[in-house]
Each structure stands twice: as C-alpha cells, then as structure tokens.
Amino acid sequence: MSQPPIKAAPAALLLDAMGTLIGLRRSVGHTYADVARQHGVIVDPTAIDRALPAVLRLASPLAFPGLEGSELLAAERQWWARRIEDTFRATGGNLAEFELPPRLSLELFDRFAESDLWQVYPDVIGPMGRWHRAGLRLAVVSNFDQRLHGLLEALGLADLLELVVVSSAAGAAKPSPQPFQLALDSLGLEPEQAWHVGDSPEDVAGARAAGITCLRIQRH
C-alpha cells in the first residue's frame, strides 16, 4: 500500500501566542473584578468569564489598516474599551445600565500589559530553545495588539523570536491569511517552508488560506 508523501521539515515555525505559548495565571474575570472594585464597581468574576467570550465573538477584528504609532495605540485602546464596556453590561444586574468610570477601561488595558498576569506554558521553553539552537526560525503570528511585544520580552521569549506579527498592526486578523503572508514576506520564505502552530479554528483556517501547514494544539 502506498504511503502519503512526508512533508519536508520546515525552515520556520509561525507560532500563535495566547493559548499556545502563553496564558493567564488566573481568569480574566478575577482581574476585571479586582480593578473594577478600586473604582467602586462590584462584579462577579464568574459572570465576566461567562460574558467575555461571546463579546469577543461578536466584535470586529482587532486590526487597523494603515494606522501606526500613537494612532494605532489609540485605536487599540478604543477597541478594548468597547469590549470591556460590553462585557460589564452583559453580566446583567445593575451593571446593564451603569455608566463605567472613564478610567476603568484604560487601567484594565494597561494591567494586561503587565507580565505578572501571564505565564509561559511549561512545555514551551524547552522545545523553543532546542528549535532555536538547531537553526529553526521562530516567529509569532497573533490576533493581539502591541502589548504582546513587551509581554514576550518580559516573559523571556523575545530572544528566541525573529519576528512578531500582531493583527492590530498587520491590518487583518486570523482567519485572514494576511498576517501569515506578512510574516512570510518579512522572513523571505514561501508557504511550504513554514508551519504554523496554534490552538484555535482561526489558526487552522488562516494558515490553510495562506498555504501553510498548521498543527493545532488543544490545552485544557
């Protein structure tokens, strides 16, 4: 019986970030509730954790074509401010009509840029170090914003990476193939020379649309 062809080993790995390389040490809801409490807003962390995924599914892509510098940062802050407001309102109760303190969303945006909230998964550092020493080119392609650069630096991953592409600056988000194509162009590679590793359906669809083999991991 004939065997399917085995693909050649890739020259580069394009890695997703959130849920693949790094994750939160505790749920989003706990941090939202802690910061909100400082502004006199009391909310159940579990209610936040239930509401946020639906809010994010309905949101426009975290991508801003043509923006850079301070304009891009302002757009990122505004995008998250809307998601934060929608999440608090979706928890129900008196928050549905409650006007959030103006600085709450800004403080939450800044809080999630701090590395103490995040962790590198235990199975990441060893393999990435071996791949890097073996000459495999490593890059990140993520549906996130510019805060990711500082997080990867603080968490000790930046030195292993040749490139970080975030959707907000790329002007398109997965499942669009555009962030992947931007990474390939920056690395000077063809699609068949790279594999993508991610944890979501958007990772799979975006990589395939760009002609890249995708390996999907599933974390608990």
Rank of each mutant, 00 (worst) to 15 (best):
W80A: 01
W80E: 03
R82C: 11
R83S: 09
F88G: 05
F88K: 10
F88Q: 07
A90V: 08
T91Q: 08
T91R: 10
G92K: 09
G92T: 08
G92N: 09
N94L: 12
N94F: 08
A96M: 14
E97Y: 13
F98K: 14
E99V: 14
E99R: 14
E99T: 14
P101Q: 00
P102A: 08
P102W: 00
P102K: 04
R103T: 13
R103G: 13
L104S: 00
L104F: 02
L104A: 04
S105T: 09
S105L: 04
S105H: 12
L106E: 15
L106A: 15
E107H: 06
E107C: 01
E107K: 07
L108V: 00
D110C: 09
D110L: 13
D110W: 08
F112N: 04
E114L: 15
E114A: 10
E114G: 03
S115C: 11
S115M: 03
D116N: 12
D116K: 09
L117M: 12
Q119S: 12
V120E: 02
V120T: 06
P122W: 04
P122Y: 00
V124H: 01
I125H: 12
I125W: 04
P127H: 05
M128Y: 06
R130W: 07
W131M: 12
W131K: 04
H132L: 09
R133E: 15
A134S: 13
A134D: 14
L138I: 08
L138F: 06
A139E: 03
A139H: 00
V140W: 01
V140Q: 01
V140S: 04
V140E: 05
V141R: 02
N143A: 11
D145I: 02
L148N: 01
H149E: 13
H149P: 06
L151A: 06
L152S: 02
L152I: 11
E153R: 15
A154L: 08
A154M: 11
L155Y: 02
G156V: 12
G156E: 12
A158W: 10
A158M: 10
D159C: 13
D159Q: 15
D159Y: 13
D159M: 13
L160M: 13
L161M: 06
L161A: 05
L163P: 00
L163D: 00
V164Q: 03
V165K: 00
S168G: 01
A173L: 11
K174Y: 03
S176R: 07
Q178I: 14
Q178D: 15
A183R: 01
L184D: 05
L184K: 05
D185V: 07
D185T: 13
L187K: 06
L187F: 09
